[in-house]
């Protein structure tokens, strides 16, 4: 555990909790892509099946349980409790175009051809693109609430910090996981355009809106 990994995890946790609290407090999930949230729930479910097979640390187990619990709570709020506020008309990204290729790739490129390992690989690949329905929704409506942009910022920051963590681990532990690294780089790149808008607009007190 190094400082980049820890702050990365905490940044991820912050993102998840910001989103959940935003929806809960405002009693509205307007502007939030339910599809992205379902994909993240799927990511956590398929990745953390090892909760049942191996114990790494109390920290590891606790965080996994929190991530899974919060992601299902978010999906529940969007599709059940606050369904009336869900903006389904703008959430039109075709997720099968992500799931099918990602599933195929997980079968072809993995560390070990075993069920748990393929599901882990699937979750890594899927996570790298799971935010696309949300970004697509923002590009479609041309704007995002400021609190939603904070959520996206922390989610992107988490992946960027993990990249530094992997560089650290490579130098100091000789550890590298090519699948996680390549997917992590892809994931971070997807946030670059958003980061630019976040820094140039949101941090200067303006609302994030895209030119028509």
């Amino acid at each position: 555990m190094n400082i980049f990994r820890l702050t990365g995890d905490l940044s991820h946790l912050a993102a998840i909790i910001i989103l959940l609290l935003k929806i809960w407090k405002s009693r509205s999930c307007a502007g939030i892509s339910g599809k992205s949230q379902v994909l993240f729930a799927l990511v956590f479910t398929t990745r953390y099946l090892d909760l049942l097979t191996s114990f790494i640390s109390l920290y590891n187990t606790t965080m996994k349980v929190i991530y899974i619990g919060c992601s299902y709570a978010t999906v529940y709020l969007i599709y059940m409790k606050l369904k009336a506020t869900y903006d389904g008309n703008h959430d039109t990204f075709r997720v099968e175009f992500l799931i099918v290729p990602v599933g195929g790739l997980a079968f072809l490129v993995n560390h070990d051809f075993s069920p748990l390992e393929i599901l882990w690989t699937f979750s890594i690949y899927l996570e790298s693109v799971a935010i696309l329905p949300q970004l697509f929704m923002i590009s479609k409506t041309g704007e995002a609430e400021t609190i939603t942009t904070h959520y996206l910022f922390f989610l992107g920051l988490y992946r960027a910090l993990y990249l530094i963590n992997w560089i650290w681990r490579f130098y100091f532990e000789g550890f590298f996981d090519m699948i996680a690294i390549v997917a992590g780089v892809v994931q971070t790149i997807l946030y670059c355009d958003f980061f630019y808008l976040y820094v140039t607009k949101v941090l200067k007190g303006k609302k994030l809106s895209l030119p028509a």
Binding site: T53, D112, D177, I179
Partner: peptide, 10 residues
């Protein structure tokens, strides 16, 4: 040395 399973990251 490359990856070790189980995966220790989140």
């Amino acid at each position: 040395h490359a990856l070790t399973m189980p995966h220790d990251e989140l």
